[in-house]
Design a protein around this nucleic acid. Structure first.
Lengths: 141, 141
DNA sequence: CCGTATCCAACAGGATACTG
DNA sequence: CAGTATCCTGTTGGATACGG
């Protein structure tokens, strides 16, 4: 028997799950987690945060260059939404041509931390997931 | 000066960020993280995983009852997609009426772990985010 | 340079009805 | 019970053009 670590982890899971699901009962009409998780249900937010974390203070067009495939419109929309949630700051310099710099707040860095964990897991699990997909698809002939 | 913990955390961040962004260069045409993160860009996947984590082996309609607001169609679609990625298993019992049970795989439990972290952060940060939103909205008069 | 405005296509996902 | 099939709507987000 050497499942102790895994067992401990499962117990830890169960505790957190219970905290989460029991807490849900109290403020049952408004689920904070669901609301916040919707932040991820868009295509670009987490990529913007990752890049801001990596590059630090960054200008609009630089960021646009780093996030492959994003349109100007969607970068604006995404950044506004992150700013509204207090995850990033937006500083405008009164120059010509104008310069605007974005930066993660402390709150944003907290989220960055979570995203990095998730990204790490994704990276580690990628191979297994791709294999599972191929297995699944092949069984449908 | 007592920023040591925060500093260490930032260094840790930077390391993980570098691993992530440098790794990206190598297999630059296919970003695993972006692919996996798309798993979250739907409305229901993470809720299904949370509930399966909480309830363990669960039948289709029980799960449907627990995930508030999900339609029969979307639960089917979501579960199929999770099954395809090897995150859950689907067991069919040849009974009348039929019984189908879903359960997290080991891989799925790994993802559950990440989701719980994220959900915990969301729960902890909710208040601050709501406040930031109100501030932002009020400043637009 | 950093946006906004407008238009439009694609797709996620809800409602409903039907089956093994 | 646990789906599938069909239809239909709202939203996301891309392309383009223009403005401060």
């Amino acid at each position: 028997m050497e499942v102790t670590v895994a067992d401990n982890q499962l117990i830890d899971f169960q505790k957190k799950l219970e905290i989460f699901f029991l807490g849900k009962e109290e403020h049952h009409e408004f689920c904070p987690v669901r609301d916040i998780m919707d932040r991820f249900s868009d295509k670009w937010s987490f990529l913007a945060i990752l890049n801001l974390g990596y590059s630090g203070t960054t200008r609009f067009n630089v960021l646009k260059g780093k996030i492959e495939g994003i349109s100007q419109r969607m970068l604006t929309v995404t950044l506004r939404s992150l700013e509204r949630d207090g995850l990033i700051t937006r500083k405008i310099y009164a120059e010509v041509p104008p310069r605007v710099e974005y930066e993660l707040t402390l709150l944003g860095k907290g989220l960055l931390r979570q995203i990095l964990e998730l990204a790490g897991w994704a990276s580690d699990s990628m191979e297994e997931i791709v294999k599972a997909r191929m297995d699944y698809d092949s069984k449908l002939q």
